[in-house]
Write a protein that binds this DNA or RNA. Structure first.
Lengths: 110, 110
DNA sequence: TAGCGTTATATTCTAAAGAAAACAACGAAC
DNA sequence: GTTCGTTGTTTTCTTTAGAATATAACGCTA
């Protein structure tokens, strides 16, 4: 049975800003308060996770995350208000796309 | 400036059936009547082109291309009626997606 | 001050995708 | 029956994304 599938993301002149994988990563950071825990939960290397977050952060007008190195519990990372807002907007877009592809799948005649 | 971008394709249980790259490849085969010319025009290796076409062909109920090895001009490859029809349907889907992402881009507020 | 778990960063290793190259088979044309 | 340009197939090489590893800096806690 055929299905319409796809990816969707938001980019600017500097590359990808946010897509599904990055959104999940932000969700995990929000959940665990830690980049290393977020990465581990996704079986992603810390470096890869850090680079993705850094990329997002640099492309955003205002930072999406706030990090602390050292201190209680070694430090940690949490989402800013901006981070939460961007995440919300992405999921809205993502849902729209899900509807589109579901609709397209059902009207597929091959 | 932020833009919504994406990929879209049609797949079944055996993997990708057709996406943008494969559609372009079919268009080139249609144009040149030859897999090797089509591949060359896309700076794609013959093997890669052949594998993509073979994959599409095996996943389709009816073959999308008809090949001749040897003979006048060394042989060649042309699209079947089914191939032309599938291509048409894919571009319809693709246009729908282009509209979606254009619309999504314009209603983006970040 | 030593220990800790984190962030931050550089370096090396691995796996996968695709390119490149080589070669056989094909069949019409001459 | 030789030549030609194609399809079909195998094998090797290259590139690149990401994993893995290593190490420093940080700052609270004890």
């Amino acid at each position: 049975m055929y299905k319409v599938k796809g990816n969707i993301w938001i980019e600017n002149e500097n590359g990808t800003f946010i897509g599904y994988g990055r959104a999940i990563l932000l969700e995990r950071v929000k959940e665990f308060g830690s980049i290393s825990e977020a990465a581990k939960s996704m079986k992603m290397s810390y470096k890869h996770a850090w680079e993705k977050l850094d990329s997002m952060n640099r492309q955003s007008k205002r930072p999406l995350i706030e990090t602390v190195a050292g201190g209680k519990g070694g430090g940690g990372t949490k989402l800013t208000e901006e981070g939460i807002a961007v995440l919300k907007k992405f999921w809205l877009l993502y849902n729209g796309f899900e509807n589109f592809s579901k609709q397209a799948t059902s009207s597929l005649d091959l």
